[in-house]
């Protein structure tokens, strides 16, 4: 069983839901990334989504765009990100790490070299924002041979036939994007989400994470009531933006802890 499946199995037996924070690797500095990851785990994160910075983050709003720009400015590459995961694994062998990013840095490295490096670094899942299922078969197969899960997005506009297709390819969990728009936009529509989840569950036999528009303990708690995992990104990245490299790990930890507490209450 993969680390991601084990994590969900354990949470299920405890009657709890997964909290999945997203941060961009290399933001605000390369040195800060591993301490931030460790702080996320201490504060109650179950899985970490680590953003691979890209020069043209087409599906992201201004907050994550800026974090990508900061990370690129200090030279963070996909190879560096894999290095952060290796370092993190030296002290944490149980928390799953999912890389989230865009296709081109992976294509530049090559599927084979990437999956090889990701497996030896200890990466558990990969989510490529601009690889819909139709274009991702080769990478998905390459990842599968290394035991790495392929995480896919579903959206409010995904038709039933596509949901079925994602159900066939995906492993680990699927990520339901709860609103139309880019990351960090507007607020979540709970009734829309709860209306869609039964149809997704009918076709996807995996845990379902919900993200986009989750900004505080209250919305996280509401989502935890209907989904298997809560993904929170832009709000954390805002916190990183407002912190200094010295206090960033502590600040992020405090914010995640407050969300965890609200979810478990």
């Amino acid at each position: 069983m993969s680390r991601i499946s084990e994590t969900f199995a354990r949470l299920r037996s405890q009657g709890r839901k997964a909290l999945i924070p997203f941060v961009t690797a290399g933001d605000p500095t390369q040195a800060a990334t591993v301490p931030i990851m460790q702080s996320l785990v201490t504060a109650g994160a179950d899985i970490i989504e680590l953003g691979v910075p890209f020069s043209d983050p087409m599906a992201d709003g201004p907050t994550i765009q800026r974090s990508s720009e900061r990370a690129l400015k200090n030279g963070t590459s996909l190879r560096n990100v894999l290095g952060f995961v290796s370092t993190f694994r030296q002290t944490d062998n149980s928390t799953p790490v999912v890389l989230m990013g865009y296709a081109n840095p992976i294509e530049a490295m090559g599927y084979e070299a990437f999956t090889e490096a990701a497996a030896s670094a200890g990466v558990d899942g990969v989510l490529v924002v601009d690889y819909p299922p139709e274009e991702s078969e080769k990478l998905t197969m390459a990842l599968r041979t290394k035991g790495i899960d392929s995480i896919f997005l579903l959206s409010p506009t995904s038709e039933e036939s596509r949901i079925e297709g994602v159900g066939r390819l995906a492993s680990g969990y699927v990520y339901y994007v709860s609103l139309k728009g880019v990351t960090g936009a507007a607020n979540i529509d709970l009734s829309e989400v709860s209306g869609r989840l039964p149809m997704i569950r009918a076709h996807v036999n995996l845990p379902i994470g919900v993200g986009f528009g989750i900004r505080d303990g209250e919305t996280a708690r509401a989502i935890a009531g209907i989904a298997d995992a809560v993904v929170i990104g832009s709000r954390l990245v805002q916190e990183i933006e407002a912190s200094t490299p010295e206090n960033v790990a502590a600040n992020i930890g405090a914010l995640v802890r407050s969300i965890r507490t609200a979810m478990d209450a």
Binding site: A103, D130, Y131, F152, G181
Partner: peptide, 14 residues
């Protein structure tokens, strides 16, 4: 060529 976009745009492109 192809269609390399996030899931949120797939429906509109279809």
């Amino acid at each position: 060529g192809g269609v390399f976009v996030a899931e949120t745009l797939i429906h509109a492109l279809d």
